[in-house]
């Protein structure tokens, strides 16, 4: 299983902080597709994806146990 985390505006849009999906072996791009289908209001293109606390590429392949975070545009400082 893959563990998903949502933050800030995305957390409020999805209504969940965390959830599990069975997407080991799939790519980040495929996960993104799944997310935008499940959550039509998802800010497509605006957020980056981090896998195990490092920014990921759309072609990266997910492995069982990965922690994936959807990262909306950051605004620290």
């Amino acid at each position: 299983m893959i563990s998903l985390r949502y933050f800030a505006g995305l957390r409020e849009q999805t209504g969940v902080t965390e959830e599990q999906v069975d997407m080991a072996g799939r790519t980040v791009a495929e996960l993104w597709e799944w997310a935008t289908e499940k959550y039509p209001d998802f800010l497509s293109g605006a957020a980056r994806v981090a896998v195990n606390e490092e920014y990921a590429l759309p072609t990266d392949v997910l492995e069982a146990g990965d922690i994936v975070a959807f990262i909306p545009p950051v605004s620290g400082g």
């Binding site: 933050f7 800030a8 920014y55 909306p72 950051v74 605004s75 620290g76 400082g77």
Partner: peptide
Amino acid sequence: AIERIKEIVPIWKK
């Protein structure tokens, strides 16, 4: 440092 914080550090302000 502050410019990079605003680019890459996952912190959000409401």
